[in-house]
Simulated assay, not measured.
Amino acid sequence: MSPAGQWQRFSFDAIGTAWHIDTPAELSANALAVVVLAVEQYDAVYSRFRPDSLVAALAGGGSITLPPSGEALGDLYRMLYRLTTGAMSPLVGGSLEQLGYDAGYSFVPHGGPVPAAVWDEQFEWSGSTIRSERPVTLDVGAAGKGQLVDLVSTALHDAGYPEHTIDAGGDMLHRGPTPLRVALEHPYTADSAIGVVDLQDRALCASASNRRRWADGLHHVLDATTGQCVDTVVATWVLADDAMVADALATALFLVPPEVLLAEFDFDYVRISSEGRAQYSLSLAGALF
């Protein structure tokens, strides 16, 4: 829903999801071109579903040089790898492929779960350079879509649209003086909400095991140390200053308690366990029903 009835919406499909961009005035042809280019360039670098992407070259080992966005992404992953004791890792791509979430979207498991490769001296992500002495399948989906939302937001600002709302398949960023009320989708009933939050000059990102689920017990949120799907948490929401951090923390909350992450990050959250229990920030700008 647009933040205000008079705002204009631009919608398109990219990186496997629907995008909606709302702005007070209709986007110019130049602004549209800049947004589309930013999305296309990011996909060409980071998509593990494209054989011609830059990260696909790591399937044979070796090294690649990422654009400037790669340094912040790598630093964030390294921090969360440490905080989750290896459970959240960009090396989880091979484990996802093993369970059927592969480049061809076969959704047919190739065997039992396999742990991701260990981030050690054989794999290095330093600045914008990645080096691996062995073949790896990189998957940055736990933070990458959020980072792309941030990059699109910067592009809109630079094109003369400082007020905007971006919704990329549930990863949202709102810039503007008026709060936007957003419903939190019930993890088991898509047409119902478990609460609402007010979003203003922040990002809201969600992760849920009912999304990208292709068989009983198989979904996209894995513990990289075991290669198994997480079954103790079913949905998370995170509000943070930028979408990359919010996106990453929404996944990390499946793997560690909020207190572990709050020691080093400033964010608000809602976390629903598989038993139906809700944890949430006392400072949350919203309400649970």
Rank of each mutant, 00 (worst) to 15 (best):
D268H: 09
P115K: 10
A224K: 04
T236L: 03
A243P: 06
A18P: 08
A287S: 11
V238H: 04
F107C: 09
D171A: 06
T154R: 15
L262V: 02
Y46N: 10
Q8P: 01
D167P: 05
V152Q: 02
A18N: 13
Y188E: 14
L54S: 10
D198G: 07
A248E: 08
D223W: 00
T85Q: 14
V234P: 02
A246H: 05
L32S: 09
A193W: 03
V108C: 11
W119Y: 15
V92E: 04
S128T: 15
V182R: 06
D231S: 12
Q122I: 00
L99C: 00
V197S: 01
S106V: 06
L27K: 00
T226D: 11
A183E: 14
V136Q: 01
E259W: 02
Y105D: 11
V238L: 07
G70S: 06
D150I: 03
M88K: 05
L282T: 10
P90Q: 04
A243F: 07
P187V: 02
G61N: 08
L76G: 00
V256P: 00
V55N: 00
D43E: 15
R202F: 00
A263Q: 15
S128D: 13
T154K: 15
V149Y: 00
A4V: 09
D75I: 10
A193H: 09
D75T: 12
G112L: 03
S153P: 03
Y161E: 03
L184M: 15
S47T: 10
A116D: 06
L218I: 13
T23S: 03
A206V: 08
M79G: 06
P115D: 10
A168D: 13
A246N: 08
G60H: 14
A215S: 14
R175H: 11
H157C: 11
G276T: 12
D150F: 01
T251I: 07
A116V: 05
L239I: 14
Q228W: 00
L249Q: 04
P67G: 04
L99M: 13
T85N: 12
A72C: 07
A29G: 10
